[in-house]
Design a binder for these strands. Structure first.
Lengths: 192, 192, 192, 192
DNA sequence: CATGAATGAGATTTCATTCAT
DNA sequence: CATGAATGAAATCTCATTCAT
């Protein structure tokens, strides 16, 4: 009983995510956003009260997807679980980059944004605990090197996920390569 | 009675580099820049004609330092050379992050900026050729795995350099760890 | 199945009056107005074509009430009439404040508004004539001081009506006090 | 050693005061302000960080002038002091109207504005104490009526100050009339 | 040279009003 | 009728850049 919607909330967040990935937080303008959507700039304010809320909502959505994808991961055998984690984060490849913008958001601008950021923090903490436990378990099972501190091994793992796939290798295969390199290294086993 | 020199070009570029690293290209403002220096905002225009020129000059300087540091690397034995490269880029840790800003610079704003960006491109190409040759030589010497495409091994190597050093391990030691993980992987050799 | 009536014209004007008194003309927004009513903002346009018309209609209503209340006042004995006028304006306490908004209304926006404003002007003029005549009669009857120009005495009288009743004295009593002070002054009669 | 100033801070506050008096807080726009000054709208931000700061500073200035004018008033004989107060507030006729805007200012917008508003509150409290004491002393000296509560007498006095001077009577004479009416009332003494 | 001051272009946000169901 | 949704105009504010001393 009103005009047809110019765009849905979900389309708005999709466009937001694309812009945040392409231009970063400071390069994210509502002008660009509205140009990616079929509507006027002011229409965006029918959905969110300000810029901060939009970005926070976008990040929250990604966090929710990530948490959901990691559901039940601890039931798997440690090394398989780690490989699964790699695949999850590869598919949600925006996760790390998006989360970088979190500290730039002005929390005082909006209560809704503040609550979303809180959710993000809790989600982050939960994920960290869960994944740390996973790597711990893997090491206790003797699957990981003991001569290098576990946090370093973990940090390298999570950072490796974001390696740019210049050759556009298909995701599955790319995951295999990354895991293979992280697990066995790039050196020739015959010469080691 | 002449006014005292406000700040040197070099101080200006140092501050620029710090700001670019801390806030990214879009968060880089001349206002913030002048606040980090001992002079007025308008004085900046005595050195550079616009924002773009400053960023381009800053990136050019880093590129020059990098090229110089890599001078003669090809004389070393391949694996030692690769380890040296790791250390060089670790010390010039800003390199990758800084270069990310390059495509954001509006080349139409300034000829000088355009020339600097061209220099950057050439430098990038030269470096790439040189380092690709290095890894090629290493593989031909049988030092690298053959079952994973060389560009992937290289990409993972260069991306691993930027792994955040959360534990603040001293650089030398950190370099050893990163190289060790890249070379041998994180899996326990006993279980492989 | 007809939608239920959202709100009446009268409710709309009541809310308008409240908002005008609380926030003044420039602080009067249709958004706030619709929030005070049980309907959508766009429904307001079923009753009035624009903001100006609403305010003008609201002011006209108050003017009509005031004129009606003053009906027949000239039949009373002058001083009693003046006291009655005081009570009338105290009860229609919004009158003066509301009328202040009149010059702010953009007459070009609406014909209906323009006509209401004309009515206001005429009403104002009529009231003024009537009340001036009243004070004139009182002075001719020797009831008012002759050493101060009548318009000044009148102005002070009408302005005194709006004295804020901080102590929340009941209206009747408050009217007595105001009239007493206006009539006899605040000085101690024994020392005069 | 720079361009000539487009306008001084004092001119800015003068224009602000005029606009606030003519249009009220909600009708106070920076566009109108800049049009009254010989400069661009953005230049205003070289003086004050936001709208709130401007209004707060303007009100603070008026409060300072008022406090200064009331300096030493308590040394006078009570009735003479009250008459002096009338003259002071008549000359600073904007005082009451300006202060009405205070509660509309958003204190969270600026620290500077918040501090100015605090100053205003303190000033208000001080003035109130001082003037209340004055009227108290006058009543104790038997100069004021005892049959009407003192706060009412005071309220009527301070409200009467703002009586619009439609006839444009010169200030001194106007003060005499207002005081005369407040003190002796408008009724004819012969008939009382 | 160095800089205080001025400013236009562009970003965010609000709100009266129109549109379409 | 009633209204949810859309939107342009206008307001606030920021910042790169120019000007004039």
């Amino acid at each position: 009983m009103a005009r047809q919607r110019a765009f849905t909330k979900s389309e708005l967040l999709d466009a937001t995510e694309r812009l945040l990935m392409e231009r970063g937080y400071d390069g994210f303008h509502l002008k660009a956003l509205s140009e990616m959507l079929s509507g006027a700039r002011s229409t965006i304010y029918e959905y969110y009260a300000n810029k901060e809320e939009i970005v926070a909502a976008c990040m929250r959505r990604t966090m929710e997807q990530t948490i959901e994808a990691c559901e039940g991961i601890e039931q798997l055998e440690p090394v398989a679980a780690i490989k699964k984690v790699l695949l999850i984060f590869l598919e949600l490849s925006n996760f790390h980059t998006l989360m970088l913008a979190a500290p730039k958001i002005d929390e005082t601008a909006s209560d809704k944004a503040r609550r979303d950021l809180e959710f993000l923090n809790e989600g982050h903490a939960d994920l960290k605990k869960k994944l740390t436990a996973l790597f711990q378990k893997a090491q206790e099972a003797g699957a990981l090197r003991a001569d290098i501190p576990l946090p370093v091994i973990t940090a390298v793992f999570f950072h490796a996920i974001d390696t740019p796939n210049w050759l556009n290798v298909p995701t599955e295969e790319w995951a295999d390569m990354l895991f293979g390199l992280w697990w066995n290294g790039g050196g020739n086993p015959l010469t080691k």
